[in-house]
């Protein structure tokens, strides 16, 4: 009786030793700051000065005066569309690297991360120079006497391309990492048993790699929701997203209390998204091998 108890004790110690530093790190450097944001969201600002007058006005403004919900809705729609597009494109690409990449597959994945060595400001500015009205694309079209492509300039579509540009590599990486440990022979088993390729994909490959996919979706969706930089460069006069307006509160107008309330709302929406993704994950079906099977 004594031996298993000691073993249990030892594994508990190890669990805490490994897990607690990260948890404490988050509590100290994220939770405490977030609490201060929540506190601020109940205060009031006036001419760049914040006053500790407890009130609900910021929430009233954000939740019941359509303006800010309009931005939120724009951001949600953008995030859904961009994430879906990334998902559709990332899967085949990740699949290709994992299955056919051979010994160079790590290199192929690292190459997807390489553009990140250049800052987003520079890359977005360059993207604008390429896609804009007098960009490389439209100049090339002009040389052949073709009309310029209007849909690439200063609108929500251009902004969507820019956001996908920034976050697509996250999705590919997450799916690739999941596929890396996927046993492709399972597919042959399915095919031998008469499954058509699409059916094999839907019943074997997709569910077994759902965790990686869900993580990829989260990695793209959340930053999309909070995106502020891209619409500034590519979105045109009506493309402002929730993140841009949130940034405005802190950088320019100094309305920190209202900004904090907007932040809390964003936080809540993200929590809902994560909860939904979490709920879809069935550990047993994805080949989970850790403790607790």
């Amino acid at each position: 009786m004594a031996a298993p108890r000691r073993l249990f004790y030892r594994s508990e110690t190890r669990f805490l030793l490994l897990g607690l530093p990260g948890v404490m790190f988050v509590v100290f450097f994220l939770l405490f700051p977030i609490v201060s944001v929540i506190v601020f969201s109940f205060w009031r600002t006036e001419s760049y000065e914040i006053y500790a007058d407890w009130n609900l006005d910021n929430y009233r403004t954000v939740l019941f005066e359509g303006t800010y919900l309009t931005f939120l809705w724009r951001s949600i729609v953008t995030a859904v569309v961009v994430t879906a597009a990334c998902l559709v494109y990332a899967w085949p690409v990740a699949y290709f690297i994992a299955k056919y990449g051979g010994r160079y597959r790590l290199l192929l994945v690292l190459a997807l991360a390489a553009p990140f060595f250049t800052g987003a400001v520079l890359r977005l500015s360059a993207l604008q120079a390429i896609m804009g009205p007098i960009g490389v694309i439209n100049m090339a079209l002009g040389m052949f006497g073709l009309p310029a492509v209007e849909f690439l300039m200063f609108n929500k579509f251009a902004s969507g391309i820019g956001i996908a540009y920034l976050y697509l590599p996250f999705m590919v990486t997450a799916i690739y990492l999941s596929l890396l440990n996927f046993n492709f022979q399972l597919l042959n088993v399915a095919k031998v048993n008469g499954a058509r390729p699409w059916r094999a994909f839907l019943t074997v490959t997709w569910p077994l790699n759902w965790i990686g996919t869900a993580i990829g979706i989260t990695l793209v969706f959340i930053p999309c929701l909070a995106e502020s930089l891209t619409p500034t460069f590519l979105g045109g006069p009506s493309g402002k997203l929730y993140g841009s307006v949130l940034g405005l509160q802190f950088d320019q107008t100094g309305t920190w209390a209202l900004g904090s309330a907007m932040g809390v709302l964003l936080f809540a929406v993200c929590c809902v998204v994560i909860a939904v993704m979490w709920w879809t994950i069935d550990l047993r079906r994805t080949g989970f091998t850790g403790a607790g099977r």
Binding site: S11, G19, L30, I34, V37, A226, G259, C271
Partner: peptide, 29 residues
């Protein structure tokens, strides 16, 4: 992943939680 512990779920949630928070908010807060 390795240890079966009653706090496992909570630890995972806490460790992923910074992702729920927009970069901008992390910076500001």
């Amino acid at each position: 992943l390795k240890y079966r512990h009653r706090w496992r779920g909570w630890f995972s949630i806490v460790l992923i939680s910074p992702m729920f928070v927009a970069e901008l908010l992390i910076g500001i807060s």
